[in-house]
Design a protein around this nucleic acid. Structure first.
Lengths: 335, 335
DNA sequence: CTGTTAGCGCCTTCAT
DNA sequence: ATGAAGGCGCTAACAG
């Protein structure tokens, strides 16, 4: 690995000139410049970014914390992040936390040790350890989808879960459904509260109460969808329509419902959330809320870069638009 | 951000002692050690990894190049990579190349500029630019699934695609199928050749020839599966069984086949490749080849770390085991 | 066991 | 326009 010095020797100039040639080419005489470029090529020289980072104090990397890499929805977000990061000269350090605090702490601390300049968190937990809490105070950080629980307010990129769930609920009540079930994801999050209250607000308007026993689940996965559906199907008040808190859950639920010899949507309507790709390809195609995952990722990068560059944020909540995709997993109540 | 010097002041020692306390605690007196730890806590000191990297010449990062972040199969590989990397004190820089040479070049060059110590490539292209070719000669690099096309042999982690496809073909011929179609992925890769010849070898044994017009596709996606299926269905020799080169393609194909009013597997059998999660949940559940994606990721890390540590590789091809999962998308030929 | 010293590779004044 | 020199934060001989 040749260093700047080898280039100096070859070109017969000082390190300063080589450095300048790379940063501010105009500051250097055209002839020397050419000579230096030739020397660089000859030496196969690459500036050591670490060495320059140490001076500037910038690593030009962002850490991204994902609770679950298997979720295609997160993937689309990451794609957006990665894209936007690259366009801005940043690279992405990926941290699969699996929701474990220990892993979160480890990855988050990369920002403290100068390995990364900012943090994007796809979860609601405060990712730093107790120990690092005060250190973390000025860390550029943004959460996507979920809101970070902390004394300090961190910016967030999310959609209006309340309204989105109202849209879904209105859709289903308009089809005449009266008995509902919910298969939720994590229950301790803001998302859970927002979505559930969105649903309840509509049902209330229809004079319907959602019993606790009809709100099941606790994890965003196909398996959870299966289990949740099984639970709901065995309820005395078997619902005719089921809200699933993401598409994976819905896919699991539909699978289970069919296994019981029931039809979707003729016997039971199912709606999802996220609009992952495969949702359009399953049978029946899933009615769901489209979240602009890719854009959410991009926006998150914007927000965290703003913080890194110490520019003031216009707002600390970026709300993105959702849209209700009515496909074939939901339909008229047949009685 | 406080540096090692602040700790020195607080603890009244030299930088060397602080450094040692962090690296080789036993080399330092217990009392001073405690004092230093207290000072570190007080200062909120975090070693600047960039600064140490510059000395050691190691960044403790690996770049991972993925052609398509939307493919859940790659995701599982990345999960394995990420996991194994973390266990070994490495972090993962994610590069979504979208199969574009320019992006590959850019990400690959991170190894040349000391941003990363090694490279894991989930594609078959040589990721460095022409310019960097000689520079890249000694770069620790491994490919997963695909084999890197290059003069120099790079190690690879893959499964025996030829045998896996023989297994699929045997499975289908045993059900009496005689007319086959193939919806392939990228056609210029080793995978394509291996898989196709695996299929053909079995068909040949049965005295069946696979016409070129029945080998369609060119991309690993659900859309490609739809298009490919449409093409095959309109062929005069409409196949009764279709090989799809990954599960996404199969999902798209099944979707399309159903749209045409045909049933899977009663009218047409469909088999996939990879065994992504959702394949067990679609209707009908997909017969496919299970690739141990997670383990492949882990193994790739092992291999690249071996190279980084300049240890000789036992072999330059790590073959992982596949297994044929017979589910319900394939069945007896009905006539 | 601890401190001194000399860099790692690069950037950046400050001179010239 | 270019060079000399100091330093970024940390590590690693080498002394003591």
């Amino acid at each position: 690995m040749s260093t700047i010095k080898k280039v100096c020797q070859l070109a017969g100039v000082s390190t300063a000139t080589v450095s300048r040639t790379l940063k501010n080419p105009d500051m250097v005489n055209e002839k020397t410049r050419e000579r230096i470029f030739k020397a660089i090529a000859e030496a196969g020289y690459r500036p050591n970014v670490l060495a320059s980072s140490i001076k500037t104090g910038r690593s030009n990397s962002l850490v991204v914390l994902v609770p679950n890499l298997s979720n295609p929805f997160f993937l689309k977000i990451i794609q957006g992040i990665e894209q936007a990061a690259q366009e801005n000269g940043y690279s992405v350090l990926l941290g699969d936390t699996q929701g474990e605090a220990k892993r979160e702490n480890e990855y988050a601390s990369m920002v403290l040790s100068n390995r990364a300049d900012g943090l994007i968190h796809l979860d609601h937990s405060f990712p730093f350890s107790k120990n690092d809490e005060t250190l973390a105070e000025n860390v550029p950080m943004v959460s996507v989808c979920e809101r970070i629980v902390s004394n300090k307010k961190y910016p967030v990129v999310e959609l209006d879960n309340y309204s989105a769930c109202r849209a879904l609920a209105n859709h289903l009540t308009s089809y005449g459904h009266k008995r509902f079930g919910v298969i939720a994801g994590q229950k301790e999050s803001q998302i859970y509260r927002d979505r559930l209250s969105g649903i309840k607000s509509v049902l209330q308007e229809e004079g319907i109460t959602l019993e606790d026993s009809l709100v099941v689940g606790g994890e965003y996965s196909m398996e959870a969808g299966e289990i949740g559906a099984r639970e709901l199907l065995s309820n005395i008040n078997r619902p005719t329509a089921i809200f699933c808190f993401n598409d994976d859950i819905a896919i699991g639920a539909i699978h289970e419902i069919k296994k019981h010899g029931l039809r979707v949507p003729d016997d039971i309507s199912v709606v999802g959330f996220d609009n992952i790709k495969v949702s359009a390809y399953i049978d029946p195609p899933l009615t769901t809320i489209d979240q602009p995952a890719y854009d959410m990722g991009r926006k998150a990068v914007e927000v965290v870069l703003q913080q890194i560059k110490k520019k003031p944020l216009q707002r600390d909540r970026e709300i993105v638009q959702f849209s209700l995709l009515e496909r074939e997993s939901s339909g008229q109540l047949k009685m």
